[in-house]
Each structure stands twice: as C-alpha cells, then as structure tokens.
C-alpha cells in the first residue's frame, strides 16, 4: 500500500518528465484518431470539395447525401442498391452463427470439464492446434464438403463455417470458465439425480452469463468483420457487408466517389465499433481470454 502512495506522489507532480508523458500520449492519440477524423470529414463533403481541397480540412458545405448514397444506391458493377443489403446479410449470418457457436462451445466446455469422456482430451488438444491452421489450408476441402452437402453458397453453409472456425476459441473459453467452478457443486447436482443435460441447462448455463457475454462480443465482432469466409462461402445472395464494401470501393468503374466510399466504410464499421464502445472492459476481457489459446 505504501509503495502505491509514494509512486502516486512521485507521479502527480507536473515536472518535465510528466509533460513528456502527456505529450507522447496525446500525439499518439492524435495519430490513432486521424483516420477516424478523415473518414468522418470526407463522408460529409461534396465531391468538388474533395477533388480540389485538403484531406484534413473541415467541410465547407456539409452534406449527408454520401451517406444516403452509400446506404441505398452505391453501385457494385451493375447493381446500384448500396450496401444496405450487405447489412441485412451480415445480420442474418452473425445472429445464428453467434448463438450456435456459443451453445456448442458451452456444451463442449461443460462436457470437457465435468465429464470424463474417453478421448475427449485428445480431441480438445487437436482442436487447440486447429486454431493455428491457416484458413487457406482448409478452404478448398471445405468447399468440396459443403458442395457435397448442398450447403455451398448458402446461408446455412456460411453459418456452419463460422461455427467450425469459432469452435476452438469458444470451447477454450467455456472450458476455462467451467474449470473455475468448484467440482463440489457439480457432484452435489449429480447426487441429486441431475442428468447430463439437466445439469447443463439448469445449473451451468445460468451461471455462465459473464462468459456468454464475452463470447458473444468476440463472435459478433469477429464474424461481422470477417471477409474471406464470407467471400468464399456465403454466395451471391448472402454476401456480408465487408465483402460488399470492398466491392463498392474496389470494383467501381468510372469516377470514384470518395465521400460515398468513406460513408460506406463507417456504416460497415458501425456495429463492431458500437459494441466496442458500449462493452469496454468486456471487449478487452475477450481479447485476453481468447489470447490464452493453447
């Protein structure tokens, strides 16, 4: 306690070292905020101003038109429907993928922590190594497998893919969480005659709220931000927002509408950014928990 006090005292004086610390932090913060600022200002400027003006300058004439265009009429190739379709597609992919991968992850974690199933430890070990396999190794065989199951280029197909790629972290998250729950609690439930699923549904799941929140934050942001899996597996009808965003910006022919592009970029980032801002420490907890991979 004493050490904290002396350390605090030493640090709160406004000496040159202190000024240096703030100078460093403030300039670093400015660097980190710069792209966000540029995105915001660019998205509300008319094109003339962008062509002639300075990228850092504040808008002279403010317009929300680029946002409208980005949402509902920006073109990818011949379609000019904006990226709103991608928004709904992403939502349709993210919601079931998140729920399913959390449920299976929790079930795995529970079975691994409390029930001694033969061979489960080995499976878990392989799964953990699986987290490090570059997706490119798995993509072609997975395309073939999904095609054989008639799931390729479909919503259920991309959901299954997200469940597969989310499984290592989800399982690890719940396994570690359940490992911290006293074994006695489980034994008591067994003595009271609880079966496998009854203990899971009525005892373990209700106790798992904190880790479910962490897992949901991880999965929602991770799947929303996914590009490569959506590109390969979702199919034309279900392309997620990130893929549509890239299509709008990188495949347009003719004049590039930078203001529309930046508005579309912000729109695409809005969901994960709001989750980040609202969840704060939970988000960091997810990173820390996911980082104990292996």
């Amino acid at each position: 306690m004493n050490a904290t006090v002396t350390r605090a005292r030493r640090n709160t004086r406004l000496d040159p070292a202190r000024i240096g610390i703030y100078a460093f932090l403030v300039s670093a913060a400015a660097f980190f905020l710069l792209p966000l600022y540029i995105m915001l200002v660019t998205s509300v400027k008319p094109m003339d101003e962008i062509r002639l003006g300075n990228i850092f300058a504040l808008p002279l004439s403010f317009t929300m038109e680029p946002w409208q265009t980005a949402w509902s009429s920006a073109c990818t190739g011949v379609d000019c429907e904006g990226i709103r379709g991608g928004f709904w597609n992403s939502l349709a992919i993210v919601a079931p993928s998140t729920v399913l991968s959390i449920l299976i992850g929790a079930l795995n974690g529970y079975a691994l922590s409390f029930w001694r199933a033969r061979g489960a430890g080995l499976l878990f070990g392989i799964l953990m190594m699986g987290a490090f396999i570059p997706v490119q190794v798995m993509i072609y065989p997975l395309v073939q497998i999904l095609a054989a199951l008639h799931l390729f280029s479909s919503l259920p197909g991309i959901i299954l893919i997200h469940v597969i790629f989310g499984m290592p972290v989800m399982t690890l998250l719940f396994r570690n969480y359940y490992a911290s729950i006293p074994e006695e609690l489980f034994k008591a439930a067994r003595i009271d005659g609880g079966g496998f699923f009854r203990i899971f549904l009525q005892l373990m799941l209700p106790m798992s709220t904190p880790i479910i929140i962490v897992a949901a934050i991880m999965q929602v942001t991770g799947i929303w931000n996914d590009y490569i899996l959506g590109l390969v597996f979702a199919g034309r009808e279900n392309l997620p927002m990130t893929v549509q965003l890239n299509n709008v910006i990188n495949t347009t022919t003719g004049v590039r509408l930078y203001n529309v592009n930046m508005a579309a970029t912000i729109l695409t980032s809005l969901v994960p950014l709001s989750i980040y801002l609202v969840s704060g420490r939970w988000f960091v907890r997810g990173i820390a928990a996911g980082a104990v991979k292996g």
Binding site: T12, P35, T242, N246, I249, M262, T268, P272, L277
Partner: peptide, 30 residues
C-alpha cells in the same frame, strides 16, 4: 497514473474493433 486513462485506452484500441477491410480502405484513401 495519467489522467483520462480510460479515454486513452479506448482510443488506442478502437481500430482493432474494425475489420481489416474497412481500415485498409481508409488507409488507401489517406
């Protein structure tokens, strides 16, 4: 023990919440 630690942490970590596609496009523009 700087003032505004929470704000600073939020600022330094927010890019990580965005997709690589989105940040890539911003930097392409910059």
């Amino acid at each position: 023990k700087v003032a505004g630690e929470g704000v600073l942490r939020t600022v330094f970590l927010y890019p990580y919440a965005m997709s690589f596609v989105a940040t890539g496009l911003v930097w392409q523009w910059l």
